[in-house]
Design a protein around this nucleic acid. Structure first.
Length: 713
DNA sequence: GCTTTCGGACCATCAATTTG
DNA sequence: AAATTGATGGTCCGAAAGCC
């Protein structure tokens, strides 16, 4: 081992070890090498390691500290592989009639030197690059190809198949596996361009030069930093250590990056911008979100097309698609998004991300990142399915991808052969693990399968017991003991984990409640209704904490995605039924707090705002008249006066009419509901919930007119 | 003349391999 | 187990190019 003492031969004075290791440090305890900042690394100039460093300070740009990239496993080519390669090259020389001295004299049985003209021999054609991106001409499209070209393509396809069979049958692959690969390759060669199916233009026909859509190199690192702060801690679908190195290299030469990495970069830009507020975005990039986001989304689309994302098995590519889809959510109808998410999940299934048997064949890093990506897609798809009123879900016990491991990114490296040991409960990935754990629990529950998989019997297909209602208690206790009690409420990601988990558990308690008592005589019993109300109030309380805490500022994009609309419905129904109950005062307070957190980001002209406030006002009117009858004084809560005030500012036609209509089965396509206020379907077939029966006319005959929007019925 | 870019010399690190 | 090897990651000098 070379020493790090001062007497290094031939070294540059500036590179003396003291530069890297502070004087006085013991060699045994020496710290990690102090790295140059990202910009100095990129510019290959000396970095003084200050914060900010002198060169960045001088240039007036942000000084971003770089991370050490994990060393990759050294790969030594085994002798056999080297010999095979030599054999292959010798074969090529033979085919081209180039004289050489062979390493192995060839006998007539030599398998690699098929005689020229035999079916096995490679058909050499000049200019075989028709399918190369960028070289395709209009006349070479599949639809307009000449007979000569078709013959050539057919020959090439046959050649590919023969080659594949030869290569594969030498190894351990089964016949089925070989056939699968061969046909996949064959399709790949035969059909060059089909990506326009989703994004409207062919992969070789980009409408603008994609390179012009990238931000400046220093902005790439700013966006990366925003992504690391606001997005990565929640999703954990990129491996920071290995990706950062690739990004640094990519940012210095955007012309040479692979389309997959380019797509991922645009996906990261999209999510970074999505996670910023308008003011933050303007302060950092001197442009508005509405300018930047569509630009990066277009770049992501084009890069996805360039990487032929629909047939690709590249993880970067699918990760990019996932980030892109999350970033378009606020401006996309859930029905549309749900459809394209189905495509994403099918791609993931083709890659085998849903199957532990397939994941086991990949490296531990690939497998683990694959699991995280699978769960992210499933969780996002589940949520969008709820919003799209989809009566189907991919969250079922029909696949066996396990919940991601509780490990830090630094615990898993590319060269690892064995899965890393699970670390403590508080790792980088705590949020992603907790929500995956919850979904993994839910997908086996009776209520969930009752709604989405009545034909599925998880205990028979998976060996797992079906949790009963009371098992939510056990599960909740387990989550509190296993994860939440270790969380520090002062830590942003821990705070998110605590209140998101508790809020979601309350939501599933409510869903389970309705499943259990739907159609039962107990459904309208006082205690059951009180229980349902308490779950809904708990949901709102958790949501208020997430919306109002300064800790979650960067994560608010995720909080907005989970607006607890059903909690509002549950609470308002209860308040109409029992306007003077002991819980009613508490309920108004909790709703008031949540509403004021909501109003921060809500526009009073939104149709969703009208729908929500209409429901709230009706509940308040019931309470007011009940108190008037009894003669007790009643203080109007702030949210009611605030709603009334905002309505007075609106033109009556814009507000009142639309609200009245929306109260009676409005045409609320979710496309016109601002995504911040997505309506929460919560897995339920609401028509089966018997929501209104017990409440209708309880106190006011007008309630018969009070209906849930179409999508909720 | 100042700044930026980047080829490449040189050093550090550490897994794989060899040596004793 | 220690020593060695060699692949890979990292720094930053200094020549050349770019810019004002």
């Amino acid at each position: 081992m070379s020493s790090s003492s001062a007497s290094l031969p031939g070294g540059r004075p500036a590179l003396a070890p003291a530069t890297y290791f502070p004087p006085g440090e013991e060699i045994m305890l020496r710290p990690r090498r102090q790295l140059a900042c990202v910009r100095c690394q990129q510019r290959k100039v000396k970095c003084d390691h200050k914060d900010p460093c002198a060169t960045c300070a001088k240039a007036g740009v942000p000084c971003v500290a770089s991370n050490q990239v994990q060393r990759r496993r050294k790969r030594r080519l085994p002798e056999r592989e080297l010999l095979d390669r030599i054999r292959n090259y010798e074969d090529l020389l033979t085919q081209h009639n180039i004289k050489f001295e062979p390493l192995h004299p060839r006998g007539p049985e030599s398998s690699v030197s098929a005689p020229k003209g035999s079916p096995d021999s490679h058909v050499e054609e000049p200019c075989e690059s028709d399918d190369e991106p960028g070289t395709t001409t209009a006349s070479s499209h599949a639809g307009t190809s000449s007979p000569r070209r078709r013959v050539r393509a057919a020959k090439q396809m046959l050649h590919t198949m023969n080659q594949e069979f030869r290569d594969r049958t030498d190894g351990d692959s089964s016949d089925d596996e070989v056939r699968g690969v061969v046909f996949k390759r064959a399709w790949d060669q035969e059909i060059a361009d089909d990506a326009h199916l989703l994004f409207g233009f062919g992969w070789h026909q980009t409408i603008v030069d994609i390179h012009t859509l990238h931000p400046q190199p220093f902005q790439i690192f700013q966006l990366w930093q925003v992504y690391l702060d606001n997005v990565d801690p929640l999703l954990k679908i990129t491996h920071t250590h290995s990706l950062q190195k690739r990004l640094i290299a990519a940012a210095t030469n955007l012309m040479t990056i692979t389309p997959e990495l380019e797509a991922l970069m645009f996906g990261i830009y999209c999510m970074a911008i999505s996670s910023l507020t308008e003011n933050e975005c303007r302060a950092m990039f001197a442009s508005s979100k509405v300018d930047l986001l569509p630009r990066f989304q277009l770049g992501c689309q084009q890069a996805l097309l360039n990487s032929r994302f629909m047939r690709s098995t590249n993880r970067d590519c699918l990760t990019a698609l996932c980030l892109y889809l999350i970033s378009v959510r606020p401006t996309t109808a859930p029905q549309s998004l749900s459809s394209i998410l189905g495509t994403a999940i099918r791609i993931a299934q083709r890659m085998g991300l849903h199957s532990e048997a397939t994941l086991a064949k990949a490296s531990p890093l690939e497998a683990e990142m694959g699991r995280r990506l699978w769960w992210s897609l499933i969780l996002f798809d589940t949520r969008i399915g709820e919003m799209a009123d989809l009566h189907a879900t991919a969250l079922l016990p029909t696949w066996d991808c396990r919940v991601p491991l509780t490990i830090n990114d630094s615990d898993i490296r590319e060269e690892m052969k064995e899965s890393p040991q699970v670390q403590g409960k508080l790792t980088d990935v705590i949020f992603a693990v907790c929500r995956s754990e919850l979904a993994d629990f839910v997908r086996y529950t009776k209520f969930h399968l009752g709604f989405f998989g009545p034909g599925l019997r998880p205990s028979a297909t998976t060996g797992q017991e079906v949790p009963q209602g009371s098992e939510i208690d056990t599960f909740h206790k387990m989550m509190e003991e296993k994860y939440l009690k270790f969380c520090d409420p002062e830590n942003a990601i821990h705070f998110m984990t605590i209140w998101t988990t508790r809020g979601n558990i309350a939501k599933y308690r409510l869903v389970e409640h309705h499943f259990r008592y739907s159609g039962s005589s107990l459904h309208h019993a006082e205690t059951q209704r009180d229980a349902a109300l308490s779950y809904a109030l708990r949901m709102l309380e958790c949501n208020t904490k997430l919306m109002t805490s300064p800790l979650t500022k960067g994560f608010i994009w995720m909080v907005h995605c989970y607006f607890p609309f059903i909690a509002y419905i549950q609470i308002i129904q209860h308040l109409k039924w029992r306007p003077k109950s002991a819980q009613a005062t508490d309920a108004w307070k909790i709703m008031n707090d949540n509403y004021h957190a909501l109003i921060e980001v809500l526009s009073v002209t939104d149709s969703f705002f009208g729908l929500l406030t209409n429901m709230i006002l009706q509940a308040w009117e019931v309470r007011e008249s009940a108190y008037k009858q009894s003669g007790y004084p009643l203080e109007t809560p702030l949210l009611v006066s605030s709603i009334r005030q905002s309505r007075e500012l609106l033109i009556p036609e814009e507000c009142g009419n639309s609200i009245k209509q929306s109260g009676s089965a409005p045409e609320i396509g979710y496309s016109d509901v601002p995504a911040y206020y997505d309506i929460d379907m919560d897995h339920l077939d609401w028509s089966a919930m018997d929501w209104d029966l017990g409440y209708k006319g309880a106190n006011d005959p007008k309630h018969d007119e009070q209906q849930l929007p179409n999508a909720l019925q």
